[in-house]
C-alpha cells in the first residue's frame, strides 16, 4: 500500500478575551476532527475557553510578501511554506 502521511494543518486560536483568531502554528493530523483535538492539546493547554479553527495548509492562498521580486514567483500562490505566525509579545521570564 502506498504510504500516506498525515497532511499539514494550520491552527488559528481565539483566546477567551481575544477579538479574533490568530495563527498559532501548525501540526499534522489525518482528518479535521483529529486536527481540532490535536490543536486543543498542543496549543491551548494553558488557556481556558478558546475557539479553534483548523485549515489544511493546502487550502490556504497566501499573498506575496511586499519586498519580494515579482520576477520569481507566480502571482496567485499556494502556501509554499507557511503563512506568517502571529507575533507574540516579547515578555520573557527567566529564573
Amino acid at each position: 500500500m502506498e504510504k500516506k502521511n498525515w497532511p499539514l494543518w494550520e491552527v488559528f486560536v481565539r483566546s477567551k478575551n481575544g477579538l479574533e483568531h490568530r495563527h498559532f502554528g501548525s501540526l499534522h493530523a489525518a482528518d479535521a476532527t483529529m486536527a481540532l483535538e490535536n490543536a486543543r492539546d498542543v496549543y491551548t493547554r494553558r488557556n481556558e475557553g478558546v475557539s479553534i479553527w483548523v485549515v489544511e495548509s493546502k487550502h490556504i492562498t497566501a499573498s506575496n510578501p511586499e519586498n519580494h521580486g515579482e520576477l520569481f514567483e507566480p502571482a496567485q500562490d499556494k502556501v509554499y511554506r507557511h503563512p506568517t505566525f502571529y507575533k507574540l509579545p516579547d515578555e520573557v521570564k527567566h529564573m
Binding site: H82, T84, Y86, L88, D90, V92, M95
Partner: peptide
C-alpha cells in the same frame, strides 16, 4: 528567521 524567533518566544515562556 521569523518562525524560529516566534517559536522560541513560546518555548522560553514555558521553559522558565
Amino acid at each position: 528567521f521569523g518562525p524560529y524567533a516566534r517559536a522560541m518566544v513560546r518555548v522560553c515562556k514555558e521553559e522558565s
